[in-house]
Design a binder for these strands. Sequence first.
DNA 1: CTACCCTATCAACACTATGTCGAGGAGATC
DNA 2: GATCTCCTCGACATAGTGTTGATAGGGTAG
Lengths: 225, 225
Amino acid sequence: MNRRHPAPGLTAGAAPERGRRVRRPSGDDRESAILATAERLLAERPVADISIDDLARGAGISRPTFYFYFESKEAVVLALLDRVAAEARALRGRALEEVGEDPAAIWRRGVASIVDTFRSHRALMLAVGQLAAESDEVRRVWGDIIEGFVEDTVLAIESERRRGAALPGPDARLLAVALNWMNERVLHAAMSGQHPSVHENDALDVLLTVWSRAVYGDDSLGSGR
Amino acid sequence: MNRRHPAPGLTAGAAPERGRRVRRPSGDDRESAILATAERLLAERPVADISIDDLARGAGISRPTFYFYFESKEAVVLALLDRVAAEARALRGRALEEVGEDPAAIWRRGVASIVDTFRSHRALMLAVGQLAAESDEVRRVWGDIIEGFVEDTVLAIESERRRGAALPGPDARLLAVALNWMNERVLHAAMSGQHPSVHENDALDVLLTVWSRAVYGDDSLGSGR
DNA sequence: CTACCCTATCAACACTATGTCGAGGAGATC
DNA sequence: GATCTCCTCGACATAGTGTTGATAGGGTAG
């Protein structure tokens, strides 16, 4: 009963447990073979149509062996999500540093980095959306990621209000939660081609317009068309 | 092979096929027993935890008999959704008539009627949210309902722009799609207690604030706190 | 070098759920 | 009373999940 199962999502929620344990190679190989298979299959079809057996066979192992590496299909997706979330945080951090102190640029880059992350990992994002409906664990981890954006947003709104640039009004957190869920939903609809939706290429513009107006009451973030 | 299965969702998309066919009573009784069971069970636990067998047993029939009345679990939920959607359209229609020509009141009532519908059918709304992730059919029907709101919204935005009251800017449809998906997502999060979310009682206020600012650039719809 | 342990592996099983087939029964209609 | 249509279910086929128990083989401690 000496399983590994690194408790997916703790990585995203708390401190990452970086630092691979010393293990003989085959273990890590299998693990990444599973991850790679998941990525490949997700590009082809929805998560719901991928069985644990597909994942196992794709990685060249049997189904019971799969369970030695992951607790479930969700755990695999969560592992992929951890990597992407880390990458996204890095991207976002770099984008925001690069841009200095100009508030308009900060907002633009902040929202744009979310849009970019969705666009460059559409298959994963779609899968997470699916699974979030079924799995408490996935919903929690995804919620934690959104929570990160919300907290950034709250800080930014409050700082802009202090400066007198942003409209006063409802609790910054309420506004932040609403705007960030809007991003998530609009992007999901756009990526999946759900009807009704905006085209992928229009998403950033509309979202920014709504953010701009919701925070400042005007189009000072640009692209109000 | 003389099945009934009224093609759920067509009812929502096109003209409702009102007017029950003349059938001996037991048929309709069974059908509504299934519907009632679904409603009862949905109030207790998530759709995913309700099997077709639960539905059948709850209605006092066997599983194969269930299939005589509905194609699947989704079809049952869709049937419930049809009823609620009709009711919601009526509510919305009445609310808007009652309010005359005052634009601010129209917006407020329009958004409020959506919030109310969510609140008075939370179990169903949650179930639809779950199933929309898995089933194309549910996603399509739900999308059609949202599309209805979007079209109303587009008309209202364009009319307010013509009057010179609303800000010009991005295509009204893009704005409408974003705002309506925001409603959906924020309300879902609120109803399910997903983290992060706004409290159910705060939802209307925040949403209205964002709508107001996105359309007019100010809090002219009131409740900007 | 041998006995032992620990990691890794899978065949086989137990279980749960879905959807279908075919054989009826029971009222209405001819 | 023959027939038709609606309705019903036992029994089956299928597909997926998760677990158990047996085992192979590398590392290592005695």
